[in-house]
């Protein structure tokens, strides 16, 4: 099962490699991992998308908690949560495709953020599956480059990770 795990950790050199090292050393999956400082400059917030049986997820949670620099861990997928991912896609856009591309971007609430005479660069946010659908909806032979951030997640309502 897919899980989205959120954690707060000390914003210190090497903290990220402890988390990444833990996943590779114990053979856990990482689908994506995002990290950046928070409003409190001493803390970083990380979102990890992983998958595994319940037992494996339980171990992942415990092992993450065991890292000295990890302040708090929450499995967002255990409750209501929101997740968003940012994608930048560069597509070939010439001739009639140009109009079509713009229209598709609009449908998905994307924005064209860079234009050349042969290309568009489209910015899109949403859940991972929305981004997947966009890539499926357009002619894949036109895709020149995609960059995705991986999911960032947050609990709904009063669910707060502190």
């Amino acid at each position: 099962m897919r899980h989205i795990i959120s954690l707060l950790m000390e914003n210190e050199a090497g903290a990220l490699s402890r988390v990444a090292g833990l996943f590779s050393a114990r053979g856990y999956n990482i689908e994506s991992l995002t990290v950046a400082p928070t409003e409190d400059a001493t803390l970083s917030r990380m979102t990890i998308v992983t998958s595994g049986s319940d037992d494996v997820i339980e171990q992942i949670n415990k092992q993450l908690n065991k890292l000295i620099e990890v302040v708090a861990v929450m499995d967002l997928s255990e409750g209501e949560h929101l997740e968003r991912e940012l994608m930048l896609v560069k597509v070939r856009a010439v001739g009639e495709v140009r109009e079509e591309m713009k229209r598709m971007a609009d449908i998905f609430r994307g924005r064209v953020i860079d234009v050349s005479d042969k290309t568009y660069t489209i910015e899109l946010t949403g859940t991972g599956s929305k981004l997947d659908s966009f890539l499926q909806a357009i002619d894949c032979s036109l895709i020149l480059e995609t960059v995705r951030t991986g999911a960032s997640g947050i609990g709904r309502g009063d669910r707060i990770l502190k």
């Binding site: 037992d55 339980e58 415990k62 092992q63 908690n65 065991k66």
Partner: peptide
């Protein structure tokens, strides 16, 4: 160590 509990055996 919580991570030692239910690691191999429930």
């Amino acid at each position: 160590d919580p991570s030692s509990i239910s690691k191999r055996v429930k």
